[in-house]
Design a protein around this nucleic acid. Structure first.
Lengths: 237, 237
DNA sequence: TCGCGGAGACTGGTATACCATATACCTCGA
DNA sequence: TCGAGGTATATGGTATACCAGTCTCCGCGA
């Protein structure tokens, strides 16, 4: 075929119509978000979900709901007990510490990669992000700080250029947000945290691979040790 | 209640009947294993699965099969295209490199934790594992070496005492086994690998946290760089 | 001979009916 | 009065029917 002879078709710059998301996918993200917003660590009793009730509320049959719940179960957000119910899970202290350890591992690797592959612009953006917050009202609005804190760590992971790192930390952050009130807001963690972050930014700017990695790891391991010491967790089932 | 007054019921020494695994759970593990055993990187064309056919072969309805496949899709083993089929996924080079980077992050953290928490017996066991192999027929039986290699790395992760680390690396290893022929069997990787492993064991024995972590990381990053250089991968969809 | 279209089979998505068991409640007898 | 045991109900698990795109292939017409 002689393509050159053909009149070029007008480029319309259309995007592929992404087949309307399936009910399953919609149920999955809706439920995930709803669970993340639950603040389960303040609620007292067991939190049970009902397939039939959810199916009514979302206006679809049980099938896509069930499949969505199966995914959430694999991600550790719910646990289903046959013929008893589906329960939103609370993490134990041990599990939270483990999540932070994994996070430390992944983010320190991200920092290493960031010193090698991130652009100067990206690193500068990180500094702006942090300074914008630090110049604010200090470490008072805990909610706000917590969001800025998570944004900082997610930015480092994004700067690694490794999509899998982002993917694998996504759920960790979601679980972590649920227990945010524990991870900050005690002694002088917020202020020390800002100092740590600044040191990390400086290491990134110097492209000091080992230092960046080490600082990020230490920062997270500090948090793990802090949670390990804390007492306010349900230890028993 | 006066229990002592009651005739004790005969002790039958029965174990709790562990609720027979659901069809979904069985389908999940069966399919996962079957896919892992598939050697997809040697097969030529697309590998398509058919829900109805699987349901016939496994002797259950489509429902549990579908739910199992949804889990496998989330884990990155298959991709389903509505009304077209379910396809076993092949990883691209980029994705494999990212898996190795994540693995490096997690295993180096595991090594760190192992120097702190593993028992001397566990570390001694690791040395025995490695020496048993090294004293064997050298680096020839590549299949055998690959298994010993994976066993070594999994042992380190187990010695960290962090269940989440094991959990998160499990699927990485599964994907890695599928491309084992690429990760070894070239230049002198096998022999160098054994040297690396011995150095790692020595660091663990010295309880040298930083060295153990760093050696493990370097070892894995070497592999990542090796794969990055290799050419024998399908790059295009 | 070629290609355009449509019919029909195929396949994943969804809805629904039914099943088995865990739980709560009720009944009846000691 | 109290508890053992039966029974109704609730709930997750499974089977099945139907739906809506997608693909194949054949036939008709240019």
């Amino acid at each position: 075929m002689n393509e050159a002879a053909l009149r070029p078709t007008a480029k319309l710059l259309v995007k592929r119509l992404d087949a309307v998301a399936s009910y399953r996918a919609q149920a999955y993200s809706t439920l995930k978000q709803a669970i993340a917003a639950l603040d389960i660590y303040s609620e007292p009793g067991e939190l049970r979900l009902d397939e039939r009730q959810l199916s009514q509320e979302l206006g679809v049959s049980r099938t896509p709901i069930r499949e969505a719940l199966a995914l959430l179960e694999q991600e550790g957000f719910v646990r289903t007990e046959p013929r008893r119910g589906i329960f939103v899970l609370r993490k134990r202290k041990r599990e939270i510490v483990e999540m932070i350890l994994v996070w430390a591992a992944l983010e320190s690797m991200a920092a290493r990669l960031a010193t090698l592959y991130a652009s100067d612009a990206e690193i500068a953006g990180l500094r702006r992000l942090m300074e914008a917050f630090a110049s604010g009202n200090g470490a008072e609005a805990s909610e706000e700080y917590s969001d800025a804190n998570i944004a900082f760590h997610q930015a480092i992971i994004r700067m690694s250029g490794c999509a899998l790192l982002s993917e694998m930390t996504e759920n960790l952050f979601l679980h972590m947000r649920a227990i945010r009130q524990l991870t900050i807001h005690q002694d002088d963690r917020a202020e020390r945290s800002i100092v740590d972050h600044m040191r990390i930014i400086e290491a990134l700017e110097r492209r000091d691979t080992e230092a960046a990695e080490s600082l990020v790891r230490k920062h997270s391991l500090d948090l793990a040790a802090h949670v390990e010491r804390s007492e306010n967790f349900l230890e028993a089932p």
